[in-house]
């Protein structure tokens, strides 16, 4: 049931995105990058030392993308941890073609932007070719561990609550968060790629690492000092995140989430650890570990390469031009009215 609801909400999200024309043109950079060099699996990578900022931090600054076609969880019919380079290239090509075909007449998505024109097709933004068969690296089967009984009960209760709210188009609050321009589903943290505009700018000043997220102009200002955490009762959509350097790696630990994003079913007490390591001039290795005993018996971890891309990032005003939201609701009300009128006619 949860799945079905999510699927239908997802469809609404996609449909809405199709007609969503922002007031301000905010197309992502459309200039295709040169073909990316394959990212050697982390274990065999030659150690590479990042340059330093003037205050001595490893330098992560620049424009990055975490575009990927690699699924979070390993497909059931795949049994190995890594594809060969040839297999990975073939998969990426197939995925890019499938994405581009969304503009084919007669398909469900034929009213959308021309993917090839507007840089929406992820392959155009450039991406590190990931040889991994899943982003999840632990557990070794590449899949999210089974939920605890408590986690399952919470998921069921959440599904029940959603059902009580009615259809997705009954009220604005029923629609997916990203359609409402509150937060992008996969923007996190943990930070995963969505369908497009998966672009980030990292800026570092003494005491801070700042990550500008293109989607909905979101910003993470990560402090590097030893300040106290926010009180337990203070909750934020993106958590309360504190950072520190461990050698070459920026480690960011987040708590104080809400139960509104529920990453993969996690509770608001999820403890998230993210690691950013620049492993090459043009690649940051992004790792995260989700620790949430209320949902999973053991922590699980994933890894995504971030590839250097080109800037600048443009303003992504989202709520300001969200005509689709009103139109989706208005459309649903109009259909209900028409159905009611038709019913009255029949009864007469």
């Amino acid at each position: 049931m949860t799945r079905r609801f999510l699927a239908s909400a997802g469809v609404v999200g996609i449909v809405v995105a199709m007609v969503w024309l922002p007031r301000v043109p905010v197309a992502a950079q459309v200039v295709p990058l040169a073909p990316v060099k394959p990212l050697i699996p982390a274990k065999t990578a030659k150690p590479w030392t990042a340059p330093r900022t003037p205050d001595g931090q490893p330098d992560l600054q620049g424009f990055w993308t975490n575009n990927t076609y690699t699924p979070l969880e390993r497909a059931k019919n795949v049994t190995k941890e890594f594809f060969t380079e040839q297999e990975a290239l073939k998969n990426a090509k197939r995925a890019a073609e499938a994405e581009g075909e969304q503009t084919e007449p007669g398909t469900v998505a034929d009213v959308h932007y021309d993917f090839t024109q507007f840089g929406l097709d992820r392959s155009q933004g450039g991406m590190a070719l990931n040889l991994r068969t899943s982003l999840i690296v632990d557990p070794p089967d590449g899949r999210i561990p089974p939920m605890t009984a408590e986690g399952q009960r919470r998921a069921a209760a959440r599904a029940e609550a959603r059902k009580r709210m009615g259809a997705p188009t009954d009220a604005v609050q029923n629609l997916p968060l990203s359609v409402r321009c509150i937060i992008m589903d996969r923007a996190g943290p943990p930070m995963l790629a969505g369908a497009y505009n998966n672009n980030y700018q990292i800026v570092q000043a003494p005491g801070y690492v700042m990550i500008l997220v293109e989607m909905i102009h979101d910003v993470r200002i990560i402090p590097l000092d030893s300040r106290p955490r926010l009180p337990q009762n203070v909750r934020q959509w993106t958590g309360n995140y504190l950072g520190r350097w461990e050698g070459e790696t920026l480690v960011v630990e987040s708590t104080n989430f809400t139960d509104k994003t529920a990453f993969q079913g996690a509770s608001a007490n999820m403890h998230l650890t993210e690691r950013f390591t620049r492993v090459a001039e043009d690649v940051i290795r992004y790792q995260f570990t989700v620790d949430d005993p209320a949902t999973w018996a053991k922590p699980w971890s994933a890894e995504v390469p971030w590839k250097k891309t080109i800037g600048p990032l443009f303003e992504h005003a989202c709520a300001e031009g969200n005509y689709a939201l009103a139109n989706t609701l208005r459309g649903a009300r109009a259909e209900e009215k028409r159905a009611a009128e038709a019913a009255t006619k029949v009864s007469k």
């Binding site: 009615g166 259809a167 188009t169 009954d170 009220a171 604005v172 609050q173 409402r180 321009c181 509150i182 937060i183 959509w237 989202c318 709520a319 939201l325 009103a326 609701l329 208005r330 649903a332 009300r333 209900e336």
Partner: peptide, 16 residues
């Protein structure tokens, strides 16, 4: 994230 706080104001009239 004030977008959430203004939804009822902006779209409440379109509720079923």
């Amino acid at each position: 994230r004030c977008v959430e706080f203004v939804e009822e104001l902006l779209y409440g009239h379109l509720r079923k």
